[in-house]
Amino acid sequence: MSGFAIETNQLTKDYGDGRGCHGVTLTIREGEAFGFLGPNGAGKSTIVKMLTGLIKPTSGKAQIYGHASGTIEARRRLGYLPELFRYPDWLTGEEVLAFHAKLCELDKGAAKRRIQQLLDEVGIGSRGRDRLKGYSKGMQQRLGLACALLGDPDIVFLDEPASALDPVGRYEVRELLARLRGQGKTIFLNSHLLEDVEQLCDKVALLNNGQVLLEGKVCEVLRQQSIWRLRVNGYTPLAAERIHLMLGTAAAVSETEAGDGTVWIELELEDDEQIGLINYLLIELGMTIYEVGKTQSRLDEWFMQAVTGLEHRGERR
């Protein structure tokens, strides 16, 4: 065994109209949580579909746990939550899972236990006995997640798993995925929710116009400086000098008037612990601090920096 859950080599899908993806080479280790990022129309779903065997590559190769993607052996190892799906509304949640259990070749007793366990785990519980026409979009999403996990797969492909969920649902899904990662499952997460990717994934790749633009471990990506904003009263230019003296020349400071006599200070820090020192310093200089916060998720920042100025075909007319 190579130790890789996913290996792709120059994977290409050419739809003939510029869409698809070109020469994608990725390796994801067993037990790794991988975040796949990219603007709309970048080709993320195309790659997921090739890996799950739903579409055939024009050229290149993909392997799931050493088996060519699309083969029965490869599909036995995976669970998949599609981006856009709607299960038949004339079935109950339990019936959908029971049908998928048959397709996963689970025996009846094991399927029954697994279905009940998963319904509880995704928060559907006894509503699994209701027909799907009474399900909200969020409940459908939870059911889809249960479906993806039904066969106890080694790798789970999740295409926007939290897209229809409220904040509580999002949190629950994140917790569930963290548990899966703890169990040694490989997770392939295709999501626009960068905060989730940042918290869950070991590795990320950024796709744009069908090509992998950047790839790396999340910890490396996050080594970038982070930006903090503080709203203070009584700000003087002396404060900027003192901050530079305290943090060294690497610290970038900028300020803007908030309009109510207070000033917004923006600081680019090397690590989060420095914000405590800044707080101390500003209070010592006689300023009042009203607000302190990070401007945005760091992966957001990384993503924005990577794609700003690039042309995205998903937005082309």
């Binding site: 579909k49 799950t52 065997g53 739903l54 029965i72 052996e73 599909r75 036995r76 995976l78 998949y80 939550l81 599609p82 981006e83 856009l84 799906f85 709607r86 299960y87 038949p88 998928h100 397709l103 996963c104 070749e105 889809g144 479906c147 066969g151 492909f157």
Partner: peptide, 14 residues
Amino acid sequence: ETGVLQSVLARPIK
């Protein structure tokens, strides 16, 4: 169109 087929055909079924 409803995505039912995508979730089914990713299963180990010919």
